[in-house]
């Protein structure tokens, strides 16, 4: 599970994230949404241990990311919007390298079904340059899931996927959540988040505007918006001026 208390990230004078607190329990999927520059990616990068927060506490499965980073990182996986792969390693070599880093002794027993599930088992000897974007994404996912993480962060996981890929990604996220993983997804695709997420946190200018279950959030705005969807709630909550009217 994920516990965040008072997370703040400053770049000199600029406040990227301010006093952010929330929690994600095992089995929950939280959607992190907000306009461009709201601080979503910065938040995720802090949660994944890529950049240090200026202030605040982050706990991953009970391990403090600041003081016990190695134990915390063993429990998490972070999937960026752009597949980040080593150009010179094949699919198989990526898995071997990741297994050694995470000390997954029986990785071949895990890797093979994973590659089968992701439909890239026949690409084992291919380099990233020989794979399509969707396949690269799948390879990143295979590497990330090799050590069976209990906490997963996705930054725009549906970018560049075809309809079938999107369907599979959504299924995969839900399956991991049902298996007990705590998941955070950052995305602009609100209608897709609505299908996958149990919780939502809306950020603007680095500050939390609202968080809770989808039902709680809809309930909060029901008086003004009626039976609104997440998109309408988002525009209302963030006060996005000039949001185009819906074409019915």
């Amino acid at each position: 599970m994920i516990e965040v208390e008072g997370l703040t990230k400053l770049y000199q004078e600029f406040v990227a994230v301010s006093e952010l607190s929330f929690g994600v329990q095992p089995g929950q999927v939280m959607g992190l949404v907000g306009p461009n520059g709201a601080g979503k990616t910065t938040t995720l990068r802090c949660l994944a241990g890529i950049i240090p927060p200026t202030r605040g506490i982050i706990r991953i499965s009970g391990h403090d990311l600041g003081s016990d980073a190695i134990a915390a990182k063993k429990e998490l996986a972070f999937f960026t919007d752009e597949p980040r792969l080593f150009d010179y390693l094949t699919v198989e070599q990526h898995l071997a390298f990741t297994a050694r880093i995470y000390q997954v002794a029986n990785y071949q027993q895990i890797a093979h079904p994973l590659l089968e599930e992701l439909e890239i088992a026949d690409k084992a000897d291919k380099l990233p340059g020989e794979l399509s974007r969707g396949m690269k994404q799948k390879l990143v996912i295979a590497c990330g899931l090799l050590h069976s993480p209990k906490v997963i962060f996705f930054d725009e996981p549906l970018t560049g996927l075809d309809p079938m890929g999107i369907r599979r990604m959504k299924d995969s996220i839900l399956r991991r959540a049902r298996a007990g993983a705590a998941i955070v997804i950052s995305s602009h695709l609100l209608h897709l988040l609505e299908e996958v997420c149990s919780h939502v946190l809306i950020l603007k200018n680095g500050r939390k505007i609202i968080d809770g279950t989808l039902a709680e959030i809809r309930q909060k705005y029901s008086e003004q918006l009626g039976n609104a969807n997440l998109e309408e709630v988002f525009f209302h909550a963030t006060g996005e001026a000039g949001a185009p009217p819906r074409i019915s």
Binding site: I50, I51, A69, I70, A71, K73, T80, R84, I101, Y102
Partner: peptide, 12 residues
């Protein structure tokens, strides 16, 4: 350029 990936590894 891959520093962000390296940073996620659970290694000293």
């Amino acid at each position: 350029p891959m520093a962000d990936v390296l940073k996620t590894y659970p290694l000293p």
